[in-house]
Computed example of a mutant assay.
Amino acid sequence: MGGAERTARKRRQQQSAASRAVTQARGGGGPSRKTIVSVIAVVVLAAVVIGGVIWTNASKNKTEGTTIAPQTSSAALDTADERQGAVVVSGKADAKVKLDIWADFLCPYCGQLQQRSGQQIEQQIQAGNVQVTYHMIPLLNDKSDPPGYSLDSANAALCAADQGKFTPFHDSLFASQPEEGKRGYDKAQLIKLGQDLGITAPEFAACVNAGTYDDQLNAALAGVRKDPSFQGTPTVLHNGQMVNWTQDGWLDKLISQAG
């Protein structure tokens, strides 16, 4: 083989090596572009899923370690003898409009009732025009995570009523209402709310921790479930008749009709 032929052959070998290097650089000798994209997609999806789980857990437990903001503007309404068994009666016995309200502290529609009409109801109680019998029942007791908030909060509200603090306790729980299906407030948080509202008697904490009124509340729930006038929470009755609390001016209308 002559020198010219050896030189040509060497040039061809160099060109072939260069061609293979370019092919590998473009992905011909390693993972394909499709494979790389698929791996990236899996990594991104995993990150999204993990992030979603973290966000969901944080959202579910957002009440943990928090303090319930005390609402004190309505404290003047209360007396220590309002509780009558598992209900609380607020207002004068000779009030011309007498309402019964069944509610659950976890119920979002009960929260809407309080937001729409709570302040007006309390003003009319204070004015002597309205008396309300509050039935705080644990209808959604299995709808918190962990279960039990409806019963714990209803019991704590009755414990607060014994100390003359039902209305601000009631209003505070609705103002900071937890979401249905998520964590409620534990007994320590409920006790702290009572203390922030000025309850100093050690009997209050003992009442909350012991679930003093749990049996009465469960019995009240079992009883109202048999009542055809009960339509879930909230149910508002006036003289045994259903009230459409979503209608604007409903309370003013009742007071006007009562003369």
Rank of each mutant, 00 (worst) to 15 (best):
I36D: 04
E180K: 07
L254Y: 03
S59P: 01
A8W: 04
A18D: 07
E64V: 15
A201P: 01
S172T: 13
K10T: 13
Y109T: 12
K165F: 02
I255D: 07
V48S: 07
K92P: 01
P178A: 03
L113R: 02
G164S: 03
P147R: 10
A86P: 10
P138C: 10
A175M: 09
D94F: 08
A160S: 12
S74K: 09
P234H: 02
L251H: 05
L77F: 01
A258V: 02
V53R: 06
P168M: 04
S19V: 03
I255R: 12
L173S: 01
R83I: 12
C159E: 06
A154M: 11
P228F: 03
S229Y: 02
N129T: 10
L193V: 07
Q119V: 11
Q114Y: 03
S16T: 14
P138T: 02
G194C: 12
N239F: 06
A21V: 08
P234Q: 09
G118Q: 11
N141H: 04
Q126M: 14
E64H: 01
L77T: 09
G198S: 11
A25E: 13
L221M: 11
V39Q: 13
I101K: 08
V44C: 11
L139Q: 10
S144H: 11
C107K: 09
Q195F: 00
Y134G: 11
D186E: 12
V53S: 07
C207Y: 06
W245L: 02
A219N: 12
A103E: 05
K92G: 08
W250R: 00
Q216S: 10
A210S: 15
G128E: 05
L158K: 05
I255C: 03
V49P: 00
P31Y: 12
D162N: 14
F105Y: 09
F230Y: 15
T79K: 15
N218C: 02
V236W: 03
G240V: 13
Q112H: 12
G184P: 09
S229C: 01
P108E: 06
G249H: 03
E5G: 09
F105L: 04
T167P: 02
L45P: 00
L139N: 01
D145A: 06
K62M: 13
G198Q: 05
V49H: 08
D252T: 13
Q119L: 09
D100T: 10
H135Q: 01
Q120V: 14
A46Y: 03
T200K: 13
T56F: 13
E64G: 06
A69Y: 06
D248M: 14
Q163K: 10
G259P: 04
E5D: 14
M136P: 06
D152M: 13
Q126E: 15
A160R: 08
A95N: 05
F169H: 04
G240W: 14
G65S: 13
K165H: 09
Q84P: 08
I121E: 11
N57H: 05
Q257T: 13
L173E: 00
D142Q: 13
G232E: 07
A93K: 15
I50C: 03
G194R: 06
K34H: 06
I125E: 07
A76Y: 04
T72N: 05
P108H: 10
G91R: 06
H170C: 10
G249L: 10
R26A: 07
V43P: 12
A47C: 06
G28L: 11
S90F: 00
A188V: 08
F174P: 10
A17L: 11
A258S: 15
H238G: 00
Q163N: 11
G223E: 08
A201R: 10
V22S: 13
S150L: 07
